[in-house]
Design a protein around this nucleic acid. Structure first.
Lengths: 185, 185
DNA sequence: AGCAAGAATGTACGTTCGTACGCTCTCGAG
DNA sequence: CTCGAGAGCGTACGAACGTACATTCTTGCT
């Protein structure tokens, strides 16, 4: 139609549609045409708004990581002591697992890209750094790194084995990893 | 050429080539033609030996998980006490990270498929079960689950952040997660 | 030697893909 | 009212894809 109208929402809609499509069919299933159909925009818009598929994927995943970091922030800002922080981390893990498989799927897709391509690895590194900043508000740097890894592993295993793991199990693991040496408060 | 000769190595070569290709270009980059070229077999062999691409991917990943489980076995069979077992686990983690990025990449690719498709999820579940059997030779079931998750997370984070983490750091994390309650020998 | 069986292959078809590019349409300045 | 400028779009092209299937070749039996 060529409205001639500058439409700033167009770009956003395309990015949102891209994430939805990745969640449904994976990065492998992404194509300009499918995204366009899902976003309700013409095919020509794809190359107009984005330099290419890769450009689009990077923007989409940046959006996604921003959302997850916001989740870390929301959970880890409130607690004021170590005990609360541990509970908050356990809550966070269950929040990540909670709703749909969507977040898990998107995370995996991103990691897969990152494992092979440095451009995406930069994204995951920044993500990890930002998450860790939140954890370091409550734990020392070494513990934060270990805890971060544990969160990753628990989330992943829980999602791949559908044996449900309850909150107590998670909290126990978090407590162990954040308990240093022979003693702990 | 149609040698008419039954060649049992043919199938193996195709599977090996598939894993190599996935490691290099990802599941998204897999095609009958590329695999055939890499394995040095004609395109027609693809549909002859495998029902389709999906069939081939499943067989390839089964081969891969078998190899990793063997690695678990090799590391976790020898130790006889808890301390040795902890060291063995730390060694195992560094072995997983050790050589190339290949194993990490393949693992991610598999998880990505598993996150969305039950047929592949069955594969990861079986894999987890078999790994855990090895861990449970040295640790109680709950600890084994937590440790398994930790191994996953440490491996992944180490690979995505290229900040190197040394053996001492890994052993410390393993020790924490395998130390229950307030005290431990 | 001749031949049936079936292992292995080459090729061709219909689809889908990313992207380039010439075109249309709207808007604000004059 | 006129008319650039540039935002936005439809289409077409070449390449790559998965798969089916007719065909070729070897082998073991008679």
């Amino acid at each position: 139609m060529a409205t001639g109208h500058t439409d700033p929402q167009r770009r956003e809609r395309i990015i949102a549609a891209t994430l939805d499509l990745i969640a449904d069919e994976g990065v492998a299933g992404v194509s300009h045409r499918k995204i366009a159909a899902r976003a309700g925009v013409p095919l020509g818009s794809m190359t107009y708004h984005f330099r290419g598929i890769d450009d689009l994927l990077r923007e989409a995943f940046r959006r996604f990581t921003d959302d997850i970091v916001a989740l870390f922030d929301a959970h880890l800002a409130p607690p004021t002591d170590r005990g609360q922080a541990r509970t908050a981390v356990a809550d966070l893990i269950h929040a990540l697992l909670g709703g749909s498989r969507r977040d898990l799927v998107l995370t995996q897709e991103l990691y897969t890209l990152a494992a092979r391509r440095p451009a995406y690895r930069a994204l995951t590194q920044e993500w990890m750094t930002r998450s860790r900043v939140h954890l370091e508000r409550h734990f020392d740097p070494v513990t934060a790194r270990q805890l971060d890894a544990l969160i990753e592993g628990l989330t992943l295993h829980r999602a791949l084995a559908q044996e449900s793991q309850d909150h107590a199990f998670t909290l126990e693991a978090v407590t162990r990893i954040t308990t240093t040496g022979r003693r702990a408060p």
